[in-house]
Amino acid sequence: MKIINCPLNGPRNAQEFVHGGEVVAHPDPHRCSDAEWADFVFMEENRAGVVREWWCHVATAYWFIAERDTVKDEFLRTYDPSELFRDRVEFTRPDPPPDPDPPLDPDPPLDPDPPLDKEA
């Protein structure tokens, strides 16, 4: 069973981790084309070679990034996401409404009857 070197916890059995998909830049949901958005939602590059991907150490819920050669199945590097993600991400709309948080969700008694206390 492969060993993955967690940046926080050190080398551990692969069973302690969950794979989180490829590291991809998220397209701007307001400005990208439908095709770009569909590609982002449904397609993976699935490269044979060195890929950059997300892994989560389950016991600590710690997310990190790994560079792995998918052909040799070798981990080359693992590191904290702060190496790639340093700045706060903001979202803006090209068509900002006059009140971005309009009273469409007013307080009761106008609150619609939301289902609560969910059980599954």
Binding site: V18, G20, H26, W54, C56, A61, W63, P81, S82, F85, R86, D87, R88, V89, D117, K118, E119, A120
Partner: peptide, 30 residues
């Protein structure tokens, strides 16, 4: 915030994943 019984762990993990990228000044504890 409450979550469904079977979805709680996944919701927690998803929140942490997003904030690893958004870098907001927020802490999430399960």
């Amino acid at each position: 915030v409450t979550a469904t019984t079977s979805g709680a762990d996944a919701v927690y993990r998803t929140m942490l994943w997003y904030n690893a990228q958004w870098r907001l000044n927020v802490d999430v504890t399960n």
